[in-house]
Design a protein around this nucleic acid. Structure first.
Lengths: 339, 339
DNA sequence: CCTGGAAATGATACCGATACCATAGACGCG
DNA sequence: CGCGTCTATGGTATCGGTATCATTTCCAGG
């Protein structure tokens, strides 16, 4: 059967070429870099493209040019809304630069992260953004061999794979603890997520202890707790610390939505905040500002982390930079009624 | 220069083939369908793969086989945590089936949705999941011509592009309104998102009116409002309705976090809920159950929508189904203290 | 012992673009 | 007027796999 216009399936570049009466090479140029083609031809190609309903095949394009416009992102959990802002920031920048975003979640497991990374490398992504800063050895070696640029953004790790964009969890935690100290609180409790596989969590704990030391407070293990994330978990942590013999006059919740759960629990019990106990949070959910009382927290540059991650990655990909990059973004304390 | 083991760049299948002393075709088979090669060869190939650090190139594979394992998802906003559960559900199922997820957001604009769809089709995705049910004509025609299977899941639209997985916004809205009626509320207010480009919002409005009719209540335009999403917006809606002459004794907030903003505003003002006004919500943020008072809301199958969307899409892609699919998922009313 | 067919493997074309180099014409300048 | 140079365009190899068909080997069954 001779090829004709009625063939099934998507139109290919050669169909456009035939209609426009030029070679495929010229069509390719007309689409990639119109300045290299005469206005006349450019118009004929444009016409032919819409006539045949041509949708370029980037798979073939990527293979041929060994370039891709896809970025792979691995977050611990998609459902956790804390990451949503960062993802949005990445997405915004990528869209502006005509790149695509692939997402996978590791479920907080380094093995699943490795699998996700492998899948992305198989897709020959142009770059990777990883939230976590701890990886399996296999993942590290795959990434190294592939030569793909990487941005990590969970915390300002001292030994990055490649580039880092984050804020310092240590400094933020320390700053908030000192803030509480300066407000006159003497027995400052601290609740974080489990630190076992979580460098961020460890950084926050170290920051807390560093601040206590500078404040001249003794560290009291009865005032420190690790809890899984969640509203109920925050409420439970509150009760355990308040009734646990440590007699806290303030508690700093450095983990996902824990502070919210604790504040709501106080409301349910009618405990005055900060009368009974002061509460400070780590995450900047806007909701915290609307609770009664509004909760003191940190403003973390989550959207900015996403944006900058995408930007430094694109810079590297497009050869505008080659140096090691480490971007330390600012955080800020938002003082509110709860402390 | 003769090819040798020290060449730069990623190892290719032919490198594996050389080391394993077989043809590339055999390597391909050993990786794709091990049952088609002898155990001996299978072992040699496996060894060679790790020896050279081979990472298959799916770009080349997709081009050659004209199959892909990438699914494209377009949501109105990534940052909006309501979609996060759905995305998580999709991601979970895709991971189990060895597929990848590409995400784009439309920023609630049909034009941007079209651009995202075009980009996905250029990547030759195997399937599309779209949250919205209204699309530009160009988007519709591109999708049709491409033959790519599509799932829409914003609402149970009567005229889907292809497959639908959702719950009925109309029925859910009606059910909640009737619930309020049965509780004895006589002047039920209703706040939704702008309906102009939003079929979901329109469905909810129609459900509200249908319920009023069945309850024998007259529709009072002073009791109905459209507001943009957001906490502050919910607070404002509350004030406008309460002080607007409609004298509501209950308000049903059928839009993102509006109910939360309203409930928190009541707390700030010391208005008893439901003494001053009862409040019901549409979205099932778990937070709503922890407010004081806990807020009556709907349990919507967000995670399930994601899972089922991915499942029906994969079924179609893998040829296990071809019929039109419309999955109507259940919702549920969670009665709490606010009503 | 011959033959048919299944199992294992290989040779080669091809997927749909882009890279690279060649070529034809136009134009400027000594 | 000849030559170099630049612009616009095309021919062809190639990216790294998979599809298809051919080939070889081996064994069962008559």
């Amino acid at each position: 059967m001779a090829p004709d216009d009625t063939r099934k399936g998507a139109a290919r570049m050669r169909d456009v070429a035939r209609v426009a009466q030029v070679s495929t090479m010229t069509v390719s140029r007309a689409l990639m870099d119109p300045s290299k083609v005469s206005p006349d031809v450019r118009a004929r190609v444009a016409e032919a493209v819409s006539a045949v309903g041509y949708v370029p095949n980037k798979v073939a394009g990527s293979l041929s040019s060994s370039r891709s416009k896809v970025i792979g992102l691995v977050v611990p959990s998609i459902e956790n809304s804390l990451f949503a802002s960062t993802i949005q920031g990445i997405s915004d920048v990528l869209r502006r630069h005509d790149h695509q975003l692939m997402i996978a979640d590791s479920g907080y497991s380094a093995e699943d992260e490795e699998a996700a990374i492998r899948a992305f490398l198989e897709q020959r992504v142009a770059g990777l953004i990883l939230h976590d800063t701890t990886h399996t050895p296999a993942a590290v070696s795959m990434i190294r061999r592939s030569g793909v640029p990487v941005v990590e953004n969970g915390t300002l790790t001292p030994s990055p794979l490649d580039m880092v964009v984050s804020y310092s969890n240590h400094d933020a935690s320390k700053a908030m603890t000192q803030h509480l100290g300066r407000l006159g609180y003497k027995r400052i409790g601290f609740v974080s997520l489990p630190s076992a596989d979580n460098e961020r969590s460890r950084d926050r704990q170290r920051g807390y202890k560093a601040a206590l030391e500078e404040l001249g407070h003794d560290f009291d293990p009865r005032l420190m707790l690790e809890m899984p994330p969640g509203l109920a978990s925050g409420a439970e942590a509150l009760l355990r610390l308040v009734e646990g013999g440590g007699h806290p006059d303030a508690i700093f919740f450095a983990g996902d939505v824990l502070a919210m759960g604790a504040t709501l629990e106080c409301a349910r019990r009618g405990w005055p905040v900060p009368g009974k106990v002061a509460i400070a949070a780590f995450d900047n959910f806007d909701l915290l500002g609307h609770l009664v009382p509004p909760v003191t927290t940190l403003r973390l540059p989550r959207l900015e982390i996403g944006r900058r991650s995408a930007e430094v990655l694109l810079d590297r990909i497009q050869g505008r930079s080659s140096a090691a990059v480490s971007v330390d973004l600012r955080f800020e304390i938002i003082h509110r009624g709860s402390t």
